[in-house]
Design a protein around this nucleic acid. Structure first.
Lengths: 128, 128
DNA sequence: ACATAACTGATAATCGTTACTGATTTGGAG
DNA sequence: CTCCAAATCAGTAACGATTATCAGTTATGT
């Protein structure tokens, strides 16, 4: 007996997340999918996002309004306070961080690292 | 003319935060201060926490339910998923992180780094 | 002391997220 | 293929943390 049934809605949500690097919110995923699936429910989006996070297929980025990342591999984020965009940031050091904290006696399952400031795009705009 | 008036409530909240390393929530700060100040309002706590964060005197740790840190110097946190406690973690590398991301073209104002797992205290409990 | 802007307490409103419900879909067993 | 139980759905109500509102109070500069 299967633990999970196949769900068309869940796969749509997952594929939508995989197809973008914009780290959308539940609401914006809902709006996009609603176009082709007019009777999609917002609750279904939330339910499946939680489901996918538990499975480890996607990552929740805890925010004022939570955002989601279809790239579940370990990486950081940069949040631009000017345009509100959320960028992926890959740091070589990142794996070491968990080791350092492990050596302190903690069992580290994962970490969240988010930088905040102004992105290069908005920096240009400001100068102009 | 002063930008801010002195506020007894604000100082109480600040002192409460400085006196603990438990990273309390707005609600728990409220409960503690309410004992000696029965007519303290929860809205006042939220209002002043925001005020103190803007001043940079304290730090907001974005969480399911936000928590606050009276130690405004740069450091990370470890969240234990078993007991729910939030620990301070000091890493030497931490300053370098901002530099690395700055070199990528971003203007980095600050970062948030939080580790999640099981703390040493809870690890012992589990074994026993 | 006066004027004014900041602040407070109390309460209502907001809004992201979760819970509930009855109907529908899925996958395995006979 | 048919039937059943578990999983999922759409729709909507409920929840809870945080913010907004507002009339009354307090702090600060003149």
């Amino acid at each position: 007996m299967a633990k999970h049934h196949y769900s068309r809605q869940r796969e749509m949500i997952y594929q939508q997340l995989k197809s973008t690097t914009e780290h959308p919110t539940a609401e914006s995923i809902y709006r996009i999918l609603k176009v082709d699936q007019p009777n999609l429910s917002l609750g279904t989006v939330y339910r499946n996002l939680n489901h996918l996070v538990e499975e480890g297929r996607i990552v929740r980025i805890p925010f004022d309004v939570d955002r989601y990342d279809g790239n579940a591999s370990e990486h950081s984020h940069f949040y631009c306070g000017t345009c509100g965009r959320l960028y992926d940031v890959n740091l070589d050091i990142e794996q070491n961080l968990d080791e350092i904290v492990s050596d302190m006696g903690y069992q580290v399952d994962r970490h969240e690292l988010i930088f905040k400031g102004v992105c290069s795009h908005c920096l240009k705009e400001t100068v102009a």
